[in-house]
Amino acid sequence: MAEKDLSADVALAVRKWQKKRGALIMVLHEIQGRLGYVPREIALELSKQMNVPLARIYEVLTFYNFFELEPPAKYVISGCMGTACYLKGTPQIMQEFSRLLGIEVGQTTPDGRFSLTTVRCVGCCGQAPVVLINGEVHSKVSPQDVPHLLAQCKD
């Protein structure tokens, strides 16, 4: 992003929220909503415009699991760890993803294509265990399905 755009984009989000209590969190939400994460340049710009120390911004960013500091992968694979899915074998499924992708849960592949995360109950326990790939639900997944699911993630 060009420097000018960046500063203007941040200014927009700041202007919208700055009068409200807890503005910093709302602005961070808005930025993450648009970019999928909060890049360092934005955090720096935000510090300048909101007059909040960078240290404070990162205290907030790292306190809440919701905020991401790295760009999201092209394919975000989330295993459901709700009680039903957990009992039906999500841990084994995630282990298989880990083995094939060479990354742990919470990490992103070096090429930026895949990241592995877990989520709490997504509300379709009848389909357990479920895996979400970019928000799309895959039902009754077994470790044997993992290579096939990855193969569907083209380019």
Binding site: R56, E59, T62
Partner: peptide, 18 residues
């Protein structure tokens, strides 16, 4: 403002901002 706490709970750690 060089030092801050990052993360929370048992993972809380002292580190420079970001």
């Amino acid at each position: 403002w060089a030092l801050s706490f990052l993360e929370r709970g048992i993972d809380t750690r002292m580190a420079p901002a970001g």
